[in-house]
């Protein structure tokens, strides 16, 4: 049993967990996110888009890792653009980068503990939270193994464990299903649904069927702009018989992309 603090039960005063208006973010010299408007609430949101659409750059900006070049970005009701103090917002963030670096000599437990410490979790709650996070991703039997001995899928799961260790309000997962086998992907979808109950989860992926199966909301971007935001059923509704793709959702995806490209070319 633990004491629930007043901060946890306080009503939120912000309408959206993640809110971007006219957001512009640079990747090097190139403007990878260019005038994006996005509003996300609680739930699991799937971020779709072709390669080079700006998904990873958007994720990095939302994780407060890189500074937006323009526009407004609000996380958990606090502005994170410019010289703002990011500490409070960052305590409520969980982030799994696409290129996920780690210290090879750390064991899984040490790695997740180190991340929990960096996220300024209260010291007494760290061991329990670490164990819970490792169990949720199904790595409990490898918790004492060094990171360099893990397979690709296990590393990905260790990365997910460090992202969820602080029970984040905003969870950003960039390509979390890479390297997972079909069974692990099913478990992962289950975990996503579970996490989406009380936090805002944004999952970037190339796998349209993952989005349809596990997400309550689909966000699609292309060339740094929002193309579509709606439920998986609405995405499926966008596609017709003549569109490319093997499933209704894939047809919806390719139809949306084709229409957006045609509009951009005009």
């Amino acid at each position: 049993m633990r004491t629930v603090s007043a901060a946890e039960t306080a009503p939120t005063t912000h309408p959206w967990v993640v809110h971007a208006e006219g957001l512009r973010v640079r990747a090097g010299r190139h403007l990878a996110v260019d005038g994006l408007d996005l509003a996300l609430g609680t739930g699991v949101h799937g971020l779709l888009g072709p390669n080079g659409a700006g998904k990873t750059t958007l994720m990095r900006a939302l994780a407060t890792v890189i500074e937006p070049a323009g526009g407004a970005l609000t996380l958990l009701g606090e502005s994170v653009a410019g010289r703002a103090d990011l500490r409070r917002v960052r305590r409520g963030l969980g982030y799994l980068p696409q290129q996920f670096g780690f210290y090879p000599r750390f064991t899984v437990r040490e790695f997740v503990e180190y991340m929990a410490w960096l996220k300024e979790m209260p010291r007494p709650s760290v061991p329990g939270a670490v164990q819970r996070a490792i169990e949720r991703v199904g790595l409990a039997d490898r918790a004492g193994s060094r990171m360099k001995t893990l397979s690709g899928g296990m590393l990905r799961r260790a990365g997910i464990a460090q992202a969820i260790v602080n029970d984040p309000s905003v969870l950003l997962l960039d390509e979390p299903t890479v390297g997972l086998d079909p069974e692990q992907r099913l478990d992962f979808r289950e975990l996503l649904r579970d996490l989406g109950v009380d936090s805002c989860v944004l999952v970037s992926t190339h796998l349209v069927e993952d989005v349809v199966a596990a997400c309550s909301d689909v966000v699609m971007i292309n060339a740094g702009r929002l193309v579509f935001q709606g439920t998986p059923d609405e995405l499926i509704g966008q596609g017709g018989e003549g569109d490319a793709g093997d499933s209704p959702a894939e047809r919806g995806y390719s139809a949306l992309l084709r229409r957006h490209r045609a509009e951009a070319a005009r």
């Binding site: 407060t64 500490r87 960052r90 982030y95 980068p97 290129q99 670096g101 410490w117 960096l118 300024e120």
Partner: peptide
């Protein structure tokens, strides 16, 4: 030289204190 750089850069401890 820090492999976990991107992970660390998104945490509250990152910055001058670290």
């Amino acid at each position: 030289s820090d492999p976990a750089w991107e992970l660390i850069a998104g945490t509250p401890t990152a910055g001058l204190p670290l």
